[in-house]
Each structure stands twice: as C-alpha cells, then as structure tokens.
Simulated assay, not measured.
Amino acid sequence: MPPAPSTTHLLLIPSYNTGPRLLSTVQDALAHWQPVWVVVDASTDASHEPVVELSRHTPHLRVILRPANGGKGATVLTGTEAALAAGFTHALVMDADGQHPANRIADFMAASAATPAALVIGKPIFGPEAPNIRLQGRKLSIFFANLEILGPGIDDPLFGFRVYPLAPLHRALTSTRFARRYDFDPEVAVRMIWNGTPTLNIPATCRYLAKSDGGISHFHYLRDNLRMIWLHARLLTQLILWRWPAALRHQRRRRS
C-alpha cells in the first residue's frame, strides 16, 4: 500500500538525460513517499516520457518540464518555487539515477518533521565499488565547506540526498547567480548556514553506478573542477570580508 500523501513534505527529483533508470527511480520513490515531483531540465534523451505517461494515472506524481537546460540548481529552484506556491514547506531532493536510497526517504522526512528548521543532510556510506579518486576528492570538498562555516556542520557537501526547508533554500538560491550547476549542493548548504539554518547530518548508503550498470554522469572533469575552485574562492573571500560573524554564530548554536 502506498504511503498517505503529505501536505508539507514532497520528494523532488531533478532530471537531465538520466536514461532508463529515471522511471524505476520514480517508481521506487512513490512506493516510499508521496507526493513525488520530477523536474526535467530540458532533457533530450526522452527519458522523461515514460514518467509523463505514468503521471497521467498517478495522482500524486507531477512532472514539470523546463524549456531550457539550466543545471541542477536551476532545476531545484524551479521545483522550489512551484512547491512554495502549492503550499509545501519542505522538499527532499533525490538524484534521478537510483544512487540514493529510496528506503531512507521516510526516515529523512521524519527527521525533518521533528526538526523543521533544519537542513537535513545525508552523509553517504559508499560501497567498495566507489572509485578511490572520487572518495579523496570528497575529503577535499568536506574540508573547504567546513572551513567556510568555521567548523563542523556539513558532513558531506556533495551528497545530494537532503531535506530542505523551502523558504531558506529559496532565499539562498535567489541571493546568488551561482549555485546553478555542479556547484549547487556545496554552495547552497554553506549559504543556508550563513543565513542561520541549522543542520542535521544523517548517514545513508549510496550506490556508485558505473556505465556498465546504467549509471550516467554529467560531471566534466576539467570544467567542473574549475567551477569548484571558483566556488570555494568566492565563498572564502566572502567569509573573510563579511560572513565570518554568521559562521561564528552557527558554531555557537551548535555547541549550545
């Protein structure tokens, strides 16, 4: 039996050329939570068409089609604005390719309901199939993200399995013209903390899907690493010039 639909918390799945895994990801999500919204970022591979067809006879599934590709952050912003207009207060953002654990959706939503002001951040538990270079790169991202908030608070800035309070998320996204592509996950977490949002970090398993398993990655090694360098340069500059009092307030609240 599917779960009763929530009137406050929805599941948001941004998708761009995800391939055949999109439909199974949506079906798994619907088995654990409703409503589920899929925001398609101008996909060209027709992967969203079976989901659109499913939505025609699934009451709590909605598909939003963006006319032009803008990146994950832009896609989440589209979903956030639509969710706020519909009266929702929180959204769990989940990757479209099946890497995130659908069986943990209800746990994360319950944690959010118990601490509604908090950004609930997933801390990934990888299996042995995860490439070591990816794991080492994450350690560097974790170091810089916590440097930018002057201490702990973001156990993993790259893992996209999170429950966002929508109003603070919208404020963070509209305060910058960045955080629209690969820089979305780390930048929005840091900005929300600077703006006073507390965090709750919860472990969750993460499947690394190779191409042979149907995994699709849009990560471009040179382009996106340069984007991350620029991201941390910007955030560290802002921290030094005027954000450090907000970061210190966050750390004082954590200690208390």
Score class of each variant (00 low, 15 high):
T18R: 10
G19K: 06
P20T: 11
P20W: 10
P20G: 11
R21A: 13
S24W: 08
S24M: 04
A31M: 10
H32D: 00
P35T: 06
V36I: 07
V36L: 07
W37M: 13
W37P: 09
V40Y: 03
D41A: 10
A46D: 14
A46S: 13
S47V: 00
H48S: 11
P50L: 05
P50T: 03
L54W: 07
L54Q: 11
S55V: 08
H60S: 11
H60L: 03
L65H: 12
A68F: 09
K72E: 13
T75R: 05
V76M: 00
V76I: 15
G79N: 09
E81I: 01
A83M: 03
A83L: 01
L84P: 01
L84H: 02
G87W: 02
T89F: 02
T89Q: 02
H90E: 00
L92N: 02
V93N: 05
D95C: 05
D97C: 01
D97M: 04
H100T: 12
P101V: 11
A102R: 06
N103I: 05
I105G: 02
A106E: 14
A106Q: 13
A106P: 03
A110R: 14
A111K: 10
A114K: 13
T115F: 03
P116M: 04
A117I: 05
A118Y: 12
V120A: 05
I121A: 10
K123R: 14
K123N: 13
I125T: 12
P131C: 11
N132A: 14
I133K: 12
L135S: 07
Q136T: 12
G137E: 12
K139E: 15
K139Q: 15
F144G: 02
D156E: 10
F159P: 00
